[in-house]
Amino acid sequence: MIEDKLELVLVTYNRALYLENTLKQFLDSPFRDCKFTVIDNCSPDNTRDVCAKYSKLFPNMSIIRNNLNIGGNANITQGLRTSSLEYTWLLADDDSYDFSDCNDVIEAVDSSTYDFVHVSSPLLPSNKKEGQNKDLTEIIEEFNPKREIHAVDLVNIIEGKYFMDLAFISSYIFRTELLESDDIIRAYDNIPNFFPQMSLISKSVNKNFFIYRAKHDLIIQGDNPENDAEHTYTFTKFYEGWLHSGLMINDKNIRKIFYTHLDNHSLPTNNYLVVLPVAIMTDKALDKKDVKINVISLLAALYKHTGWIKGFLLSIYLLLIYIVPSSVYKLLYKKFY
């Protein structure tokens, strides 16, 4: 039974209304009897009251409240290492769920066959985005009608979208034993780069995990305007952290796919030669702080990915973008955005 196999671990901070909505959805889901652990990162709002309320409604819920706010990425890392059952589903607190057709996911977990059970694709969702021809399920079914695929094959098919999809922490259920002590150490080490989960994502290609793709997305990624308003990551800082995170990938060819295919939802291309300059332009147009420092760190990450010669040429290219006065980018930003 699914409750003997799967533990849900939800990380939360200061989003009581969103958290309550998430817990309501799971209370009416086939997963309600699973072991359910909520990790509250010392929220100052009424998150504690929401947790207390729902701990009485779920049959197998426990609450962990940090005595200090340890930061969002550290809390994600804590969530990664919390589960004690065969499979773990790490959840966010502000998403919408569709459990109307999830028997295949339950069967996949119950079979103990797969390393990842992929349940949501922000970039290639089953509720197709404008301009999207195929969703991820259709793409994988063309490869294998059973929707079974190994990680390296999936990277070769959808390229950088593989990593961007999995960066959404709730997008997959993983076999708990695959996350070993060294992986957790790397996750903690990567917290300054924003993506502790990249420790497991990189391992998925390093060890070529066996993946099952759900028929339909179980999650519609949350649209939280309050969270967006409080977001402190600049575009250059985001990509700098992303590129540093990708250095955990062992295979040079896969690492090249990783760094050359970078998604930006406002651009029609994911080519890094376009995405990275636009990131610099946007941060300068919006007078974001520490752009110079972030660009330098971004260049260092590119050197590590590409080597000295190509890294040198990329540095010249991006530095030329950087030295253009902010006033020029402000005009461009106003015109196009």
Rank of each mutant, 00 (worst) to 15 (best):
residue 31 F to K: 04
residue 142 E to S: 12
residue 261 H to I: 00
residue 247 L to K: 00
residue 193 N to T: 02
residue 234 T to W: 14
residue 211 I to D: 06
residue 52 A to M: 01
residue 186 R to I: 00
residue 78 Q to W: 03
residue 79 G to L: 07
residue 104 D to M: 08
residue 281 M to F: 12
residue 204 S to A: 14
residue 256 K to T: 02
residue 279 A to I: 07
residue 231 H to C: 06
residue 135 D to Y: 03
residue 168 F to D: 00
residue 127 N to P: 11
residue 311 G to W: 00
residue 26 F to W: 10
residue 99 F to H: 11
residue 301 A to Y: 01
residue 60 N to M: 03
residue 298 L to Q: 01
residue 170 S to Q: 06
residue 318 L to H: 02
residue 77 T to K: 02
residue 216 H to N: 15
residue 323 I to L: 09
residue 323 I to T: 13
residue 253 N to D: 14
residue 196 P to W: 03
residue 266 S to G: 11
residue 308 W to P: 10
residue 129 K to T: 11
residue 30 P to A: 06
residue 55 S to N: 13
residue 201 I to T: 12
residue 225 P to Y: 12
residue 61 M to N: 05
residue 322 Y to S: 00
residue 28 D to K: 15
residue 291 V to A: 01
residue 192 P to V: 02
residue 288 K to V: 03
residue 231 H to G: 11
residue 233 Y to S: 07
residue 6 L to N: 04
residue 93 D to C: 06
residue 115 D to A: 00
residue 62 S to W: 04
residue 256 K to F: 03
residue 296 I to Y: 01
residue 57 L to G: 08
residue 254 I to L: 14
residue 213 R to D: 09
residue 216 H to I: 02
residue 212 Y to A: 04
residue 62 S to Y: 03
residue 291 V to E: 01
residue 218 L to D: 13
residue 251 D to Y: 11
residue 296 I to C: 01
residue 314 L to Q: 08
residue 116 F to K: 03
residue 192 P to R: 05
residue 103 N to E: 14
residue 265 H to P: 08
residue 38 V to W: 12
residue 98 D to V: 00
residue 124 L to H: 04
residue 18 Y to M: 05
residue 168 F to Y: 10
residue 318 L to G: 00
residue 148 E to M: 11
residue 269 T to H: 07
residue 332 L to M: 07
residue 124 L to W: 04
residue 32 R to D: 13
residue 220 I to S: 14
residue 310 K to H: 12
residue 282 T to V: 04
residue 10 L to S: 08
residue 109 V to P: 13
residue 330 K to M: 00
residue 190 N to E: 13
residue 107 E to W: 09
residue 323 I to C: 07
residue 146 K to N: 15
residue 325 P to G: 08
residue 95 D to Y: 09
residue 288 K to R: 15
residue 51 C to P: 11
residue 159 E to M: 05
residue 133 N to V: 03
residue 307 G to K: 07
residue 248 M to H: 13
residue 17 L to D: 15
residue 243 L to Q: 04
residue 272 Y to R: 00
residue 38 V to G: 03
residue 280 I to L: 05
residue 257 I to F: 07
residue 293 I to E: 01
residue 1 M to D: 15
residue 168 F to W: 08
residue 282 T to N: 07
residue 278 V to G: 09
residue 119 V to Y: 14
residue 251 D to N: 14
residue 212 Y to F: 10
residue 164 M to K: 12
residue 44 P to G: 10
residue 207 K to D: 07
residue 324 V to N: 03
residue 331 L to V: 09
residue 145 P to E: 13
residue 107 E to M: 06
residue 77 T to I: 01
residue 28 D to W: 15
residue 26 F to S: 06
residue 36 F to Y: 15
residue 151 A to Y: 04
residue 230 E to C: 11
residue 204 S to K: 12
residue 50 V to W: 03
residue 105 V to G: 12
residue 85 L to Y: 15
residue 140 I to G: 14
residue 321 I to V: 09
residue 247 L to A: 07
residue 287 D to H: 15
residue 19 L to W: 07
residue 53 K to Q: 08
residue 52 A to C: 09
residue 190 N to C: 05
residue 82 T to C: 13
residue 309 I to C: 06
residue 236 T to Q: 01
residue 41 N to E: 12
residue 110 D to L: 00
residue 199 S to I: 04
residue 302 L to P: 01
residue 252 K to F: 05
residue 101 D to F: 12
residue 35 K to L: 09
residue 201 I to M: 05
residue 50 V to N: 08
residue 170 S to A: 13
residue 41 N to L: 01
residue 244 H to G: 02
residue 251 D to C: 12
residue 31 F to A: 02
residue 287 D to G: 14
residue 48 R to M: 08
